[in-house]
Computed example of a mutant assay.
Amino acid sequence: MSNNSQSMSFNAGQAKGQTQEKASNLMDKASNAAQSAKESIQEGGQQLKQKAQGASETIKEKTGISK
């Protein structure tokens, strides 16, 4: 293989490696964003559930159902 051909092959390999690394980083960022969104939704759901339970208890107390 000529020196120029080896250099081109080396550069192509470097470019491929860099592209794979960038793709991997983007996938990690997307995964982290998805996990964060999932956790936010779960937290919001828990807060809604607690508020609904509190409202239910208040209604039971006001109407005398809990007695």
Rank of each mutant, 00 (worst) to 15 (best):
S2H: 01
N3H: 08
N4I: 14
S5F: 04
S5D: 15
Q6V: 12
S7E: 15
S7C: 03
M8P: 00
M8H: 02
S9Y: 06
F10N: 12
F10P: 00
N11W: 05
A12Y: 04
A12K: 11
A12M: 08
G13V: 03
G13P: 04
G13N: 11
Q14C: 05
Q14F: 07
Q14L: 15
A15R: 13
K16I: 07
K16G: 06
K16C: 03
K16W: 05
G17F: 04
G17N: 09
T19G: 12
T19C: 01
T19K: 14
Q20R: 15
Q20G: 04
Q20W: 08
E21W: 13
K22T: 12
A23R: 14
S24E: 14
L26H: 09
M27Q: 15
M27Y: 13
M27F: 11
D28R: 15
D28K: 15
D28G: 05
K29D: 05
K29S: 09
A30N: 07
A30K: 14
S31R: 12
S31A: 10
N32D: 06
A33H: 06
A33R: 13
A34N: 09
S36H: 10
A37M: 09
A37W: 03
E39R: 06
E39I: 09
E39F: 05
E39C: 00
S40I: 09
I41H: 01
Q42V: 14
E43S: 04
G44N: 08
G45I: 05
G45L: 05
Q46V: 13
Q47L: 06
Q47K: 06
Q47A: 06
L48T: 11
L48F: 06
K49M: 10
K49D: 12
Q50K: 08
Q50L: 13
Q50R: 07
K51Y: 02
K51T: 11
A52W: 02
A52Q: 12
Q53Y: 07
G54T: 08
G54E: 11
G54Y: 01
A55W: 04
A55E: 12
S56D: 04
E57K: 10
T58P: 00
T58F: 06
T58I: 14
I59P: 00
I59H: 03
K60D: 13
K60P: 02
E61M: 09
E61G: 00
E61Q: 12
K62M: 13
K62F: 09
T63G: 01
T63A: 07
T63R: 01
G64M: 02
G64D: 06
I65V: 13
I65S: 08
S66F: 03
K67D: 15
K67M: 10
